[in-house]
Amino acid sequence: MTNVSKFGPTVGKIALLLLLCATTVAGFLWLPAAKGFPQPEMARIVVFHVPCAIVADLAAAVAAWYAIVYLRCRRFTDDVKSSVSFGLALLFSLLTTVTGAIFAKSQWGGYWNWDPKQTAILMLLLIYVAYFALRAAIDDPRKRASLSAAYALFAVVAVPFLTYILPNSTEQTLHPKNVINTRDGLDASYKIVLWAGVFGLSLFYVWAFRVQVALGTLELRLNERFRAASQNKGVRPVIVEERK
């Protein structure tokens, strides 16, 4: 590693930090109040809420993609990528739910209203938690990888059914429509901050994804060596013998 390639990522991280700070400051200070909402001042949270939701979906899509790749090619690195991305999807979904609940309290009067989108994200959170519960319960790494990939894909297929259910869910949603298209009485400047937020959080996602995948791959190699050593030299692993 040369100094230049070490220097590059540091600059990138600082730039990312500044970008995320800038969207936060812009959300509070630069943007005008959203006139189309019952509580215009409190509606500023959409510039955090919507990017989180978009990045959560992105992370889930990446995770599902790597689940398919794992089932096709059976490489453990794909399993690591899939589970890491599901973890980040869980994180961003939680952030979406919390910011959405704050928004709902100020605009609609209650933290939880069983709005169709709230129902859908609750189901997604349950799926992510169930995914990690399933992973934790299986010891054999091969089985863990293939079973969790299969479960992820099975669950992905069940999700769209929620968008059709419950009284007129497609028309009577409390959610403002077209926030991103800025038709609901939102100033055009919201669009800029929203997409800047999406861009910044996506970069954050990519960074977190790469760090965690690198860590997971290292763990994988360590485990492989450990297993190979214990196979070559009897039941005891190498480390124990060195200490003697």
């Binding site: 169930a130 059914f161 929620l162 259910i165």
Partner: peptide
Amino acid sequence: LFFIVAFPILLPLVLIAVQ
């Protein structure tokens, strides 16, 4: 585990069936 893992997948089914 069966309950935790099956529940989110059966949730849409149950909601539709109730309707």
